[in-house]
Design a protein around this nucleic acid. Structure first.
Length: 444
DNA sequence: AAACAGTGCGCG
DNA sequence: AAAGCGCGCACTGTTT
């Protein structure tokens, strides 16, 4: 980690400065449109010079108390109206959507464009990669945090990742351990059904759960629907979520993610034909209403743990019971977690920690080997299950070959508890091209 | 002015 | 009985 920190990563300072000016203009432009609205005038009247456009509490007062817009039910820990993006998307008022768009840009501007710039000296920034800060024995990163640079939103991702570039004449190469935590979990729980899903390339757990959750034939599952099932159901369940929240997110996802069947039928229309006509009351104490998503997902959840992954289910119980008896546990990579933990924490920490330790072992091995071979390629960052490097083009094949060998073969030889090996996915930018342009490269 | 709590949001 | 896990950073509003 110290070597990586010393190497540092190249930043296109000229681009950032331009992007800051451009984004500033865009924010001002959007603000001027807001200033013409009733809500804005009312806000100014209520708070006068104390008015701050970023103050969600003020906006809550203006919208729900002063103007009488119906308030959503969700509350924060301290009892105020919850004002995050998910809740505000349920507020039926044009002002709110314009305001959210401004906040999104402001986030990109302050945390990322300006945040990266202040940490950059002579064109390079040197993020810290800490190994001593987390509950789980993962790493963390700060000043700047290199582990949360935008990527999911394509527009914001491009705005920020265009600023991150290779050293002159090089490429940025990102090597990602695919399904690191699922594979690691299978080395704890040894569920044969889960292992089959991982090892059999013709099977697809997320597609199968999309079929269950949205009552679809395999051929009707689109990429988006698969992605929704993956994040709103499969991963949520693996980390300990429950049917009430899964049902809500799967249901809302139909609209926010514009989910349809492969033949173009909106999934709410499709579900209605299958007899699911509403979300349900989402009351865990009451029996779900017949024909509700809530009742349907409760059944899918039961089936998921009792029929599909019973061994994983049993492991969770046994692991938690053992922790409660002892007050601590040791991970497969030899780290001890102790102190008070909730059930979900106790079963998630070992997986998260050991998955990272697989990456860490590979990273150390990689850097030692590159030094031994006197290679010029430099590792410049790490994001929990991926390695970012500044690769000299003449060393590209050697570098990717080395990474593949270490991750898919050497790692398994080193730790005898690895029954399910790791797999890898490598993406690279062109020479002198920014991180945002990374594309899949095929490796042997 | 500095410190702190609360909230929200970016990533894996 | 409980009800996704882990982080760091910016901003607001209040207290020291």
């Amino acid at each position: 980690m110290a070597d990586i920190e010393a190497n540092g990563i190249h930043v296109d300072v000229q681009y950032i400065n331009k992007a800051i000016r451009r984004s500033q203009r865009r924010i001002e432009h959007k603000k001027r449109a807001l200033q013409k609205t009733d809500v804005y005038r009312q806000w100014r009247r209520t708070f006068g010079s104390r008015m701050k456009l970023g103050a969600r509490e003020q906006m809550s007062t203006v919208l729900f108390d002063v103007m009488g817009v119906p308030a959503p039910a969700a509350r924060t820990a301290s009892g105020k109206v919850k004002m995050d993006e998910a809740v505000l998307n349920t507020v039926d008022h044009p002002f709110v959507q314009q305001w959210l768009a401004i906040e999104k840009l402001k986030k990109a501007m302050s945390t990322y464009l300006k945040g990266l710039l202040v940490e950059t000296v002579d064109g390079y920034m040197h993020p810290f990669f800490n190994l001593h800060t987390t509950q789980t024995y993962r790493s963390s990163s700060d000043s700047p945090n290199f582990q949360n640079i935008p990527v999911r939103d394509p527009v914001i991702g491009k705005l920020i990742r265009t600023a991150i570039i290779p050293r002159p004449g090089r490429c940025i190469v990102e090597s990602d351990i695919s399904g690191a935590e699922v594979r690691t979990s299978s080395n704890y729980n040894k569920d044969p059904r889960l292992i089959k899903y991982i090892l059999d390339p013709s099977s697809d757990m997320h597609r199968d759960m999309a079929c269950e959750c949205y009552m679809l034939e395999q051929s009707e599952v689109t990429k988006r629907t698969r992605a929704a099932a993956k994040s709103y159901f499969v991963f949520a369940q693996f980390y300990g979520d429950w049917y009430i929240d899964c049902a809500r997110r799967l249901w809302e996802g139909i609209h926010t993610d514009k989910l349809t069947t492969a033949s173009g039928v909106p999934l709410d229309v499709h579900l209605r034909k299958k007899g699911i006509t509403r979300l349900g009351r989402l009351d865990p104490k009451a029996e779900p209403i017949p024909g509700s998503m809530e009742g349907h997902i409760r059944k899918v959840e039961r089936d998921f743990w009792h029929k599909r992954f019973p061994v994983y289910h049993q492991w969770k119980q046994d692991w938690y019971d053992a922790y409660r008896k002892q007050g601590w546990f040791e991970t497969l990579t030899g780290f001890v977690c102790s102190g008070y933990m909730k059930r979900n924490e106790a079963v998630n920490y070992p997986i998260q920690g050991s998955a990272f330790h697989c990456l860490l072992w590979c990273l150390i091995r990689l850097q030692n080997e590159m030094k031994r071979r006197k290679m010029e390629t430099l590792v410049v960052g790490q994001i929990h299950d991926s390695i970012v490097a500044d690769v000299v083009p003449s060393e590209m094949d050697e570098y990717t070959g080395l990474v593949v060998d270490i991750v898919t073969r050497q790692l398994q030889k080193h730790w005898d508890w690895i029954e399910v090996p790791m797999a890898i996915d490598i993406e690279a930018s062109g020479v002198d091209r920014p991180w945002v342009e990374k594309k899949e490269v095929s490796v042997a």
